[in-house]
Computed example of a mutant assay.
Amino acid sequence: MQIALNARILQAPRTGIGHYLAELVSALRHEPDLELSLFHGWGWSSSLPAAAMPGYSRLTPLLRQIPGAYQARRWLEQRRFDRGRSAAIDLYHEPSLWPLAFKGPTVITLHDLTHLHYPSTQPAARLREIERRLGQGVQQARLILTDSQFVADEAQRYFGLGPERFVVAPLGAAARFHPRSNESLQQVLQSHGVQPQGYFLCVGTLEPRKNLALVLRAHAELPQALRQRFPLLVVGMAGWKGEQLADELHTALASGHVRLLGYLPDEQVAHLMAGARGLIFPSIYEGFGLPVLEAMASGTPVILTRRSAMPEVAGTAGNYIEPEDLHGLCEVMIRLINDQAHWQVCREAGLQQAKLFSWERCARVTARAYCRALEG
């Protein structure tokens, strides 16, 4: 069975969908009777490209300003997709939003419906393109993979499709996310001026949907001694509308108790995840919430909201708050600092919950979906 996978997103710095695709491809390599051809936007290859860092392209900001630029780029990609593609391809898998044209069976992955709930998180030109293309892509697909049952359910309602069109393939945590000894953490943590279990961590693109403003306010409300002992580290690159956080972020950074680390290499993120007192992830909407799983697999307690798909990931291991609950977030942070027994219970519960997920399982479910799609 020969599968064509659109891997163009791997040209960009790897955030959620990029990590999904890279890990899925690696895991699918171990599935029997399955061969992958990866389309990189300019041609075809059998290997994954190296991860890009921020600043990889100067074109993206221009696309937001040039009328028709998204359509022109898509036309060019379609031509490159058609050129050089093996005639033996049995099925095409599109892992991000909307598929290119393909005459054979198509499977897509629908990670979330953020553009419906929070359209302001998308550039206007991109939002128009999503609205124009996504419905067509859903109709084109024989099967639709989702990361969670939550997304499958809301997509069924929105598109008016039956459950037989959907396959839930939960994500996994990469092997780099695992508990680490304090000694093994020292080099990376010292480079950021922190000690093991001596800081809180936020991971994610800086945009309003991630609710970072609540974290900044809650950390500022901690007693000064705790703010000094447990600074807040924020990892992630700026996202669309991230400038809405500018004033609060500037105030927080000026206090010296919050540090904005930007986009970091994967191994550094894994070390910081394993060394944190807790991951704070109060996002308003997620199709899965991969950092939550990665933190639990690292032995780090998680603070999150009981919204969208995240309870499917954290189960009973999460410390849940409401998205607007400043006082509740402060209380949970203080408890994770002062109550060592509670911290240990959260750590062990998270490690057990994380064992329910793996990229191997995701790949097996995905490979079975390919077979179903080929059967028609």
Rank of each mutant, 00 (worst) to 15 (best):
W98Y: 15
G278D: 08
P119L: 09
A297Q: 13
G16P: 05
A341Q: 15
D325N: 12
R133M: 13
N182W: 11
I130H: 13
A169V: 05
L145D: 07
K103V: 13
P99Q: 15
R142G: 15
Q340H: 08
I337P: 10
P291R: 08
N338V: 12
L351P: 04
G137W: 15
A152C: 10
R307D: 02
M333T: 02
C346G: 07
P231W: 06
A7V: 12
D33T: 14
P54I: 04
P179R: 08
S191A: 15
V167L: 15
T121R: 01
G262Y: 06
G376N: 08
W240F: 08
Q186H: 10
V332M: 08
G376P: 02
Q71L: 14
L76E: 12
F281L: 00
N6P: 13
R335L: 12
P123S: 00
Q186F: 02
L48T: 04
K241S: 06
Y263R: 01
L374C: 04
G162L: 03
C202P: 00
L10M: 10
Q344W: 03
M1C: 05
T60E: 09
V188Q: 03
H93Y: 14
G239H: 08
L226C: 06
L206I: 13
G350E: 01
L97A: 14
S120I: 13
M296I: 00
N211Y: 02
L290A: 01
F177V: 03
A174R: 04
